[in-house]
């Protein structure tokens, strides 16, 4: 268990989710989901395709408006917790590019494919008012190095990047503004295993070093075990099991979790 999670008594949670539900027409995608997320904590959400993981993530990040329930976020400067879905859109967008970040499963959704890597990383600082080209560029170069992309690719477009590089570039683009909370939707989806391993290494390193809180949606239990402190198992839009990662994976209680864990090949 991380040190941050031990401080739960002292600090109020970063994110408080209560009774969240979203249906598309008559078809419920997720229902009655409640949890707390503390600063520096990584929550994994696992479950099979169609279990409502991505819908949950989009509801949390303000991209979708839920039918029921609330998402409260406690900003860094303290003060009142913000009801994410009651905020005016301008405020929510600001939150999305300052305190928060969203890493898409397909990097093409999160990147501007038509402009260079440097411009991609610089977009958030520029949107927040950075107007010094030299500093924006230096920051971009620094972040490119931190996600292990060669510095001479700074002026290349992401279209010339491999899948793994694009995903790392997307991380740099999100992390450059120093977010406190990052939502990741299958960050390793579609990558081959060796590239996955490198990305996971990098992610784990960045998350610990920056003290990020994160919600990571994945169907890959290995990813969950490596990155997540706590785990939520979803099935048919509901949370069926919730606990510390090791506990859930090593001693699954719910029959569905048992099935999930036993269906992974042991290497």
């Amino acid at each position: 268990m991380s040190a941050a999670a031990l401080m739960t008594e002292a600090d109020p949670p970063l994110l408080t989710v209560a009774g969240l539900g979203k249906a598309f027409g008559a078809r419920p995608a997720c229902a009655d989901i409640s949890f707390d997320l503390y600063a520096g904590e990584v929550l994994g959400v696992v479950g099979e395709s169609g279990s409502g993981k991505t819908t949950l993530l989009r509801c949390l990040s303000g991209g979708l408006t839920p039918d029921a329930g609330t998402v409260l976020y406690r900003p860094a400067e303290g003060g009142q917790a913000l009801d994410v879905h009651a905020l005016p859109e301008g405020r929510r967008r600001l939150l999305m590019r300052t305190d928060w970040g969203y890493v898409h499963q397909d990097p093409r959704d999160g990147l501007r494919m038509g402009v260079s890597a440097g411009a991609n990383i610089g977009e958030r600082p520029m949107a927040l008012g950075a107007r010094h080209y030299g500093r924006i560029r230096a920051d971009a170069a620094d972040w490119l190095a931190r996600v292990e992309i060669e510095s001479d690719r700074l002026d290349d477009r992401p279209t010339t990047f491999s899948g793994g590089m694009r995903q790392r570039l997307q991380l740099a683009r999100v992390l450059v503004s120093g977010p406190r909370l990052v939502f990741m939707d299958e960050p390793t989806g579609g990558l081959d295993v060796s590239v996955q391993a490198r990305l996971l290494d990098l992610l784990r390193d960045l998350v610990t070093r920056l003290g990020l809180a994160a919600v990571i949606v994945t169907h890959d239990l290995a990813v969950a075990r490596l990155l997540a402190h706590r785990l939520m198992v979803m099935k048919d839009g509901r949370v069926v099991e919730h606990g510390l990662t090791d506990q859930v994976l090593d001693d699954p209680h719910h029959p569905y979790t048992q099935l999930l864990v036993s269906s992974v090949l042991q290497a």
Partner: peptide
């Protein structure tokens, strides 16, 4: 923010 992305791209 995107307007400056365009200008950045020009300078780069």
């Amino acid at each position: 923010g995107v307007m400056h992305v365009k200008l950045y791209e020009d300078i780069a």
